[in-house]
Each structure stands twice: as C-alpha cells, then as structure tokens.
Design a binder for these strands. Sequence first.
DNA 1: TAAACTGTATTATTGCTTTAATACAAAGAT
DNA 2: ATCTTTGTATTAAAGCAATAATACAGTTTA
Lengths: 123, 123
Amino acid sequence: MDWKLDESLPIRSQLTERLISLIASSRYGPGDRIPSVRDLASDAGVNPNTMQRALCELEDMGLVVTNRTAGRCVTEDINIIDSFRRKRAREQTEEFLKKMSALGLERNEIKSLLKEALGEDEL
Amino acid sequence: MDWKLDESLPIRSQLTERLISLIASSRYGPGDRIPSVRDLASDAGVNPNTMQRALCELEDMGLVVTNRTAGRCVTEDINIIDSFRRKRAREQTEEFLKKMSALGLERNEIKSLLKEALGEDEL
DNA sequence: TAAACTGTATTATTGCTTTAATACAAAGAT
DNA sequence: ATCTTTGTATTAAAGCAATAATACAGTTTA
C-alpha cells in the first residue's frame, strides 16, 4: 500500500487519518485482524513508535480493540464505525463550507464548483 | 479581530490562511494598506517574527506588495487575487471530495450532507 | 532635524515530533 | 519447552517551529 505521506502535517496525524479511512471504507472490515505495529510501520516506512501512537488514537476512538499479546482487531461494533463515519463526514462538510465562505464564495459559485468536480449536470 | 488560532497546525500556516482569507474576501481590498507586522502580530497575539514569515508567503504569492520602509499593500492587480481565489476554491473542493471518498461515502450521501448543511431543498 | 515607524536580519532558547535502539512480559507456534 | 510474535515502555538524539530579544537602515512625521 502507498501511504502517501508528506510534510504538510505531523506523520502521526497522517497515519491516524489513513487508518481511519481504511476502517471507514471497510478495507479493514469489522472484526478483521490488523497487521502488527511493526509490519504496518515497515509498510508505511515510519518508525514503529510513531505507528504505535497512531494506533493508540484509533483505540481511544473505539475503532480498534487491542488484545495485549495477540494483536489488534477492528471493532465488531458496526454502530461505532458508522456513527464515527457520519460524524466525520458532517464535520468535513462544515469545514469545507467554512473554507469556501472564507474565500468569499457565494452559494451559487460553490454549487457550480461541486457540479464541475463531480462531473454532473444535476447535483 | 479574533484570529482563532489553534494547535492543529503550525501557527504560521494559520496566519497565512487567515491573511489570504482577508484578501480573497476583500476585507483587505486591492491597493489597501496592510497594518504593520508588529501591529498584526500584536493583534493576533503571536511573535512578530512569525507574522513576518506569514506575510512573506503572501508576497511570494503576489497577493501583497512590500515597500521596504513604507509598509505593505494588497496588490492592485485584481486578476491575481481573483485567479488565486478560483484556484484555491477548486483545490479545496477536490480535497473535500477526496476526504469524503476516503470515508467511503457515495455521491448520494455527499449530496445529502451538502443539502443539509446549506439548508436547502434543492442543491 | 529628531523621533517614531517601516520591513528585515540575527542569534539563542524552548518545546514538540520523529527517529532510533532497546527492553520486557505474555501468548502462539513449532 | 523453546523460539517467535505480540503490544508496550523507556531513553536519547536530531530536526523543526515558535518565541524572545535585539539590531539596522531607510521613510514618515512631528
């Protein structure tokens, strides 16, 4: 997997986002075993310590469950995953609209840009 | 003015974004004199050095013009401001849609969220 | 002309993030 | 039973961002 890390944000934050995305999009499904800290770190090309911290954040959010010596799994509770997904989506929508307002864009312009980006006539 | 700085990003980046917003939304209009580095820094509650660096980024983008000892002004070239505004808006739209895809959302869900956030029946 | 203000430059220090190199205890695998 | 793998913890070092405290040269202003 290409983790596509850059320097615009702390690496740990980027790892956290990526892991969330993997779970939210079901590429790591409910109950699935997650690769070990060391494997993930090696794959992403980062220090195991950094990956460990990212995973701990996921655990704090309740998205993953840790079995001390037997590895980690995605939570089996679909509600947690789905409500998290909805919450995040809502937040990012708000954030997007705020940024557009900050640029002084009107609703019509926003709608127009979205249509264009989605390649649709009717939004 | 409330600069609303947090710790999610480097302060300099946040200052840059805020200044861009002020210009893009015409709160600092074309040709307008910009407050001094020290005044802006004092207002934002940051170190003058940090504000200075943010302003230099704006200058690199061509949004402000510096008159060595006589302060800074917003560029008088409306084209620069407007094309920058459009470019940013496009980028942020792309970014938003990418984030939504990363969460595994379908177009219908995205549309629905946008309608809800904009408080409109028809988007 | 003198004082205040402009952007800019420099140096040092503090704190955070990341990397690095280990170490440990518990469970699984052979 | 031994070896490997698991998550976790610790300590040190390097790099970067932000702050702090100045200093300088040129322009405005009083």
